[in-house]
Design a protein around this nucleic acid. Structure first.
Lengths: 127, 127
DNA sequence: CTATCTGCAAAACATTTGCTGAGCA
DNA sequence: TGCTCAGCAAATGTTTTGCAGATAG
């Protein structure tokens, strides 16, 4: 994998970000430094970087995928109203043994767990 | 809410199905009975029925949304390889109290939990 | 040098929407 | 009969892809 200018800047920006941005948000960010970068390049690089395990695609159920500058798994909280994603403070603690007991046909490889909620901003707006 | 022919058949088919179909799969199913139904109608009805709480949109992270003929929450297993969705045997058992401790800014409303795995068919193919 | 990568544009795909005419209640 | 709904097609939004030229190693 080559370290191109584009790839380097995408990675830098994503690592700096705490907001778990979408591809388009990253694209907008990066364009301030590389005005001619194309959205296709951003998508391609996010895909490669996550396949390499350097970043991760967040398994969120919204319409747009979101990305995380780290690849270590941790719990996310998602705002049901605006889609914002935030890291949670607690570690999940799941009894996988109990949960997978009885699932004899599937080969279980993991769980997907995330908290749902309303973020402070949306909470304020709706009141 | 009116009970049109289209809505009735979509609901019937979905209730009979155990495969948690996508909108297009439902569309294909229903067309055997109503050849002129449009995909837009299927989407509109699935949306209305799930807003009414009669069915549910499954919160899966694939590209296509999937639907469930029941609205009571239960655990799903998802095949990471082909996207198939199946009901799990066990009930999740999460210590929400512990998990939400420290999340003071978000108003937590729920969790999203699903098992990931490889289904028997994909398991066979990849070996 | 050359295999990988970029920018661009078009394609692909899921989903939504505007409109007009049809049909449930 | 009136209001909701269906069918159709076009629009939307996200992501992928083909291609020809650029560039990292």
């Amino acid at each position: 994998m080559r370290l191109t200018k584009q790839r380097k800047i995408i990675l830098e920006r994503l690592k700096q970000s705490r907001r778990h941005p979408t591809a388009v948000q990253i694209y907008d960010e990066v364009r301030s430094e590389l005005p001619n970068i194309s959205l296709g390049t951003v998508y391609r690089n996010l895909d490669i970087l996550s396949k390499e395990g350097i970043i991760s695609k967040i398994e969120t159920c919204g319409d747009q995928k979101r990305f995380d500058g780290t690849s270590d798994p941790h719990l996310h909280i998602i705002c049901s109203s605006c889609g914002k994603v935030q890291d949670a403070h607690q570690e999940p603690d799941i009894d996988m043994d109990r949960l997978t007991r009885g699932e004899t046909d599937f080969k279980i490889t993991g769980v997907r767990l995330e908290l749902l909620g309303i973020c402070p901003e949306c909470n304020r707006e709706n009141n």
